[in-house]
Every structure is written in structure tokens, then in C-alpha cells.
Design a protein around this nucleic acid. Structure first.
Lengths: 168, 168
DNA sequence: GACCTTCCGTTACACGATATCATGACGGTC
DNA sequence: GACCGTCATGATATCGTGTAACGGAAGGTC
């Protein structure tokens, strides 16, 4: 597997405690940098999202927290998700109404990623798509359309699953 | 306004009886060409979608049909929508969970359009995006990702609304 | 402490989508 | 005509996604 593929598509369930703790730490830094509060609830929601490489729905997060004894209302999940989105530590998959943790953390570069979502294992990868977003912007300008938000999402098979390596 | 802009963004509510009848006729031909049946219900659902340039949700279609005395269950609307999608006479906006009539009818060319959705008036325009989809395909190949479905959607202001010409 | 802002809990609800099973409409075949 | 297969529709229920509104709690600032 190429480097880019390995980076974009790690095994979806390899949840490593140390890795997760590190991700939480980085998320905390993102919140601090933006003068947002990384509250207990937001951290718990983030941990559920970051615990998997797959995308996860709001009610799935709710269920997993409930399993751990934390019972919250849907609206609370969504509020936490809003904060996490604003902080930039998670992304939203429009085509699936689901969320996943941002692994690139390259907001500084300003280069926007596009999302590759595996239909088999659910893993979501991000690859640089700045040139594509640029082209979309040009297409909008050509139509005299004032673009504000752009979505680019691809569904298919990740390298692991395409090779038959994904879980059945 | 440029030609491309005028074509992509007519006034969202200018529902012309003759134009609609023509659209229904073309839709019927599409169904025939694909050996699908353009049934009464499918035609009614199509008319509601094609009556506006804006995107429209399934339950909005349901409500409008109910206003006209046709009371159907949600599942029936969705089945009709599925058929219309398969025939290619409507498109689905993933980012809004809504549907709109295809105005380009250029399936023959095989060039895929991208969707420009106005946040103010709701109008959805289509412009050629084949080169963008090509690039996305290349990006996927670079990540060893086997792409199957691609979504590209843009939200913003259509020329009319950006110029202050849209309804408030 | 008093104040303000932000976050969270609770309830209820709107909207989007599907599962399941039953009925109807049509064409072909014997 | 009787039978059968296929597809479209109807009816009911349920699930998934997302938000409104209101009040209370937690944490900063003076």
C-alpha cells in the first residue's frame, strides 16, 4: 500500500488508547487556540468520534455514551458536535449525515481536503483537494454564482477493502 | 446576466403551464427510452418537483399533493422519487435531502453537471463539471481508492439573489 | 458577591426515510 | 376464461436525523 493510502486509510477499528489520548490533547489545543471551551461533554463526544476511523452518526454517539452510563439528549450531542465542527477537529459527511475526526490537522496550510468514504468498512480518508475546490470556484464564477460552501464527497472502496482485506 | 447564468438560474417560481407540460412530455420520453413506466403518481410527483426551480423535500411534495386532494403515504412518494431518479429526470441534493428537476437533459453527452444551490431563493442550477469529476477521479486513484459515487454540491447565492433581485 | 455569558438538561416536536405486509393492475400463457 | 408473475400502489408503523423553546447550572469578570 502506498504511503498516501496508508495515511488516508488506517484500519477503521484500531483504537489505540495512547493514540486517542494524543488526539484528545490536540483537540484541546485547537479549542484553546480558538478561545473555545473543551468541556467534559465535548470531550466525551469527541472521544467517541475519534475512537474510530469510520464516520459515526449522532444517535450512534448517543447510544455509545449511554452504554457507558452517560445519558444525554440528542440536542446535547448536536451542540457538542457544533462546537467540535467549529473547532475544526471533526468533519461532517453530508452524504451520510455522519461525522468523523479530522486526522490531517493542516488548517494552517489552508488546503482543503476532500473526503473518501468506504462503503464497506466505513473508514473516511482525507486527501488534498485544494485544486479541485479551486476549479469548483471557477465554475461558480463562470455561472455568476457566489459560492459560500462547497462539498466534495466520494463513496467507494478503500484500498484495504478493495483488496479484500476489510472485515466482512 | 450572462447566458450561462440565465440558463442555470431562472426565477425559481416562474411556473409556466406550457413549460411544465413540455417538461412532463420530455420526462415521459425519458421513461419510455429506459423502458420504465411513467405512471400517474410518478407524473404527479414529477410535476410538483418540476413546477419550481428550487429543490423540494419529499414531505413538501406530499403536502402539495394533499392540498390538491391526492393523499398518499410517504413511502409512495419515495418510490415515485426513486423511479424519477432512475429515469434521470430529477436529481437529489445530498446536502439538503431534497430533489429538483433536471433541466439539462444532456445525459447523451455523458458530461456530469455540478449543482449550485441558492441559499436564499432555493433555486438549483447545473453547470458542466466533467473536468472536476475527472480530477476527483484522479485524486481517488492517487489514494488507491476505488471511487463509485461522487458528490459535488455548492451552496451560496444565485446571480439574481446576489444582485438583490431575489424575493426577500 | 453580583453579573454575564456560555453551556447543558428537559420536553416536545418536525422532517426524512424505510420495513412490512396487503392489495391492485396489467400482461402473458395454458 | 383461469392462472400466474411482475410491478405499482396502499396502509400502518417505526426508525433516524435534527431543532425549538425554556429554564437551570457552571464558569469567567468586575
Amino acid at each position: 500500500m502506498s504511503d498516501v493510502a496508508r495515511i488516508a486509510f488506517p484500519p477503521p477499528d484500531k483504537t489505540n488508547g495512547k493514540r486517542l489520548a494524543k488526539a484528545v490533547e490536540r483537540a484541546g489545543e485547537e479549542f484553546a487556540a480558538k478561545n473555545l471551551r473543551f468541556t467534559k461533554l465535548r470531550q466525551m463526544v469527541y472521544e467517541e468520534i475519534a475512537a474510530t476511523y469510520a464516520s459515526i452518526g449522532a444517535y450512534e454517539i448517543l447510544a455509545r455514551l449511554a452504554d457507558k452510563g452517560t445519558r444525554v439528549a440528542p440536542i446535547s450531542i448536536y451542540r457538542a458536535i457544533d462546537a467540535l465542527l467549529e473547532a475544526g477537529v471533526i468533519h461532517r459527511l453530508e452524504s451520510k449525515n455522519a461525522f468523523f475526526a479530522c486526522r490531517r490537522m493542516d488548517h494552517r496550510t489552508g488546503r482543503r481536503p476532500l473526503f473518501l468514504s468506504c462503503e464497506k468498512c466505513g473508514a473516511v480518508g482525507e486527501v488534498d483537494g485544494q485544486h479541485i475546490f479551486d476549479l469548483i470556484g471557477e465554475a461558480a464564477v463562470g455561472a455568476k454564482f457566489q459560492a459560500r460552501v462547497k462539498f466534495v464527497e466520494v463513496q467507494g472502496l478503500c484500498p484495504r477493502c478493495a483488496a479484500g482485506g476489510g472485515k466482512e
